[in-house]
Design a protein around this nucleic acid. Structure first.
Lengths: 215, 215
DNA sequence: CTCTGTGAAGGGATTCACAGCG
DNA sequence: CGCTGTGAATCCCTTCACAGAG
């Protein structure tokens, strides 16, 4: 029922709330969350409505309670296992990055075409040969996969992960994946995003110049 | 006039068209692009309408012409300079990754708080001290910045890049940036995206199980 | 026939605006 | 007063569905 967009923002609010809590604020108003996250205040209230959390009209939302409430909606019961496919530069950076983040999301297995990488342990994450995916995914109860291989290998990686029972994919490869309907794919496409900012950067600069020159 | 969403998809279409062209296809139909990219055929036609490119009703779109036409809308006249802020694991992986992509987007400068990194050259990208940003950005005509520093340093990095005249930011740091209205920010938030897939993976798995168990 | 181009309809998400409360 | 919670309005995007062309 809760929409895709709302889920994305709840994570954002939580991060912001954790910081505010660290600064010793027991209560927050929707417009404060809004200012910190760049979302509108009405939007914040709507999103919190969706998870059924109520604040008090004169003091706002209780920080600790709200964090807990968001967690109950976003997080699963225990730790969610995540697998990484592809141990190039990007893959290794991702492991290092994620291992410092949310503790309930742990990258516990990595796979690579290069058999020489099997058996190694990188940042606390063990590497396996691709043939072992199904078994490892079952044993470690892995439900999410990250794809950090070159474009030409991305579909194959996705197929293997899906066959191993994965229900969600985070795709870093510049390639549109074809997956069964029950698998949720999130794209993190560095090149496309960069092309996009470059486009808007040029556009807004053009506007700035025509504003100063035109009038 | 062209919407944000459309711009994002045009890049996607171009990538797909380049591949199809490489496979020797002189013409493509909207439904073929659609199938390759996971977008609907009507959407593809709408987007191409937005850039004013017309296909022929019985043969579809001419691949080479369409690629050129998309390029005219997305790309600037020359090469666009991109700067990277933050030379940790992630930053270095990004340089390596982008340098193999679109040639009109070149990461030509990198900055890091650690002065020891200044002067080095990584993957063809020269590193400078943060104090040199304004000068380097002017000399190299850099208009886009990428932020790959820890959360606590992200706002400072953004401020420095904006002060140096940047009009677009690609933000990898888990922190919502506050920037002037003329600066376009694109978020690539690894942690939030991972939380999101994990959520939907759990949800779709729950559905799968209730489907098989329920009826 | 099967395409494209496109007006019109439809669906979501966001914002507006205000009642209700302390 | 200023806040939350929320119906109603708005806006934007996507899809439908069909005319027109070869």
């Amino acid at each position: 029922m809760t929409s895709d967009k709302t889920i994305g923002r709840l994570g954002l609010y939580r991060r912001c709330l954790n910081r505010l809590q660290g600064e010793g604020r027991p209560f927050v108003y929707s417009h404060q969350i809004a200012a910190e996250t760049g979302v509108s205040a009405a939007q914040v209230r709507r999103d919190l409505m969706a998870i059924g959390y109520s604040g008090s009209p004169n003091r706002g939302y209780q920080t600790t309670e709200l964090i807990k409430s968001i967690g109950e909606h976003l997080d699963g019961p225990g730790e969610t296992g995540v697998a990484l496919f592809g141990l190039g530069n990007l893959g290794r950076a991702i492991i290092a990055y994620v291992s410092r983040q949310r503790p309930n999301l742990a990258v516990t297995a990595a796979f690579d075409k290069d058999p020489a990488k099997a058996g190694r342990v990188i940042q606390g994450c063990r590497c396996y040969a691709v043939e072992e995916i199904a078994q490892v995914a079952r044993e470690k109860n892995i439900k999410v996969g990250m794809i950090a291989v070159p474009a030409y290998a991305a579909q194959d990686a996705a197929d293997r992960l899906v066959a191993a029972g994965i229900c969600g994919l985070l795709n870093f490869a510049p390639h549109s994946l074809k997956v069964p309907a029950h698998v949720h794919v999130e794209e993190l496409d560095l090149t496309l995003s960069l092309e996009k900012v470059a486009f808007f950067a040029r556009r807004s600069q053009a506007e700035k110049q025509s504003n100063s020159g035109g009038q």
